[in-house]
Amino acid sequence: MSPLLEVRDLRVTFPDRATGGVHPVDGVSFELARGETLALVGESGCGKSLSALALLRLVPPPGRIASGSAVVLDGTDVLALDDKSLRKVRGRRIAMIFQDPMTSLNPVFTVGDQITEVVHAHFKVPKQEARDRALKLLNEVGIPDAASRLDAYPHQLSGGMRQRVMIAIALAGEPELLIADEPTTALDVTVQAQILELLDQLRATHGMSMLLITHDLGIVAGRADRVAVMYAGQIVEQASTAALFAKPSHPYTQGLFASVPRLTGPVGHLMPIPGTVPPPSAWPSGCRFRTRCPIVHARSAEMPPMLQVGPEHSMRCWLAEDQQ
């Protein structure tokens, strides 16, 4: 079966006076099957959120998607659509949940208004029907006393409730793909698990695919089917969640794992990766991780391609060749 979403060589360009143009997203390719959850993992600044925005052609200007990129949703190239057809993809086929539910909701409209607005944008239904749907959605995302919350304003809700509203809005278009961009980062730890649980359950009941964007490997296990690790605008390792957790192979991925505290196993020191992700204008030639890599392969001055490490497990590192 063909994948629901196929992203090929996605490249986002921003003008830059010194270099003539930088690519914060630089040749990202992945596939997403129906019903599948793919986690896109990386530090802030690695290009994961921008990649997600690019899927909906929401790259903030002056940035733009470079030619040669392809985002194919169920056979249609999203990048080639005219504005009207694009609007039928946004929210209707691909919906997105943002990191901060406070600023992503318009403070001056009620929760009900903001849900029914999306219903009306995508379905020809009478007012009452839209309101009924909104109520049903609020119930579905677990908002207590949903009927009275319809007329509440965002500031009258807690952070967790606001994110539930965001999810309800996303579901209003009955999308096939849900992009969740750091959906729990702005929330209290106790609420995080509830929201992730809810997302997982909704994905299953609605038969949606999910692209889960996070910097937190800890929330990936048990939720995502596959994981793509991003570094400096590129995917550096891609594998099934089980394979990645069993055998993280790219030195960067290994570094991410070493910097996550564990509750089981021997007590050891956390090993942070030295330095930070350099800005796109300062990426080294060849392997982009070589400035922070503890190993530094002999060929690291050349850009490594994605190389196989195992069945459905590949990474962008020359070490893969040595292992074969």
């Binding site: 609007r87 943002f98 992503s104 318009n106 944008a121």
Partner: peptide
């Protein structure tokens, strides 16, 4: 504002985003 980008991601028309969401605020 982020809610303008969010409104775009929901497939609302540009006219609605401008004259309802942005203008009002």
């Amino acid at each position: 504002q982020p809610f303008v980008a969010a409104a775009r991601a929901r497939g609302l028309s540009e006219r609605r985003i401008r004259w309802r969401h942005a203008l009002r605020t």
